[in-house]
Amino acid sequence: MSQLFTFLDMSGYGNFIWPAFGISAIILLGILVHSQRFLKRTEKELETLNNQVNTSDIA
């Protein structure tokens, strides 16, 4: 347990090191989620529009 605390403490600089790694992870995950959602949203919208176009062409 004390080994874990020593590791997390990072020679007394844990308050700076962990936020740096944490913010990096949050921002990278944020871009990943935003980009995937952007793609899914446009795919869905394009599919709906294509269906509308096909239906109106048949009509």
Binding site: S35, Q36, F38, L39, R41, T42, E43, E45, L46, L49, N50, V53
Partner: peptide, 17 residues
Amino acid sequence: IVRMRAEFNSNKIRAIR
């Protein structure tokens, strides 16, 4: 790559609209 595919889709959506 993910965003490029989404941007291409957006362009197609705009053209259809």
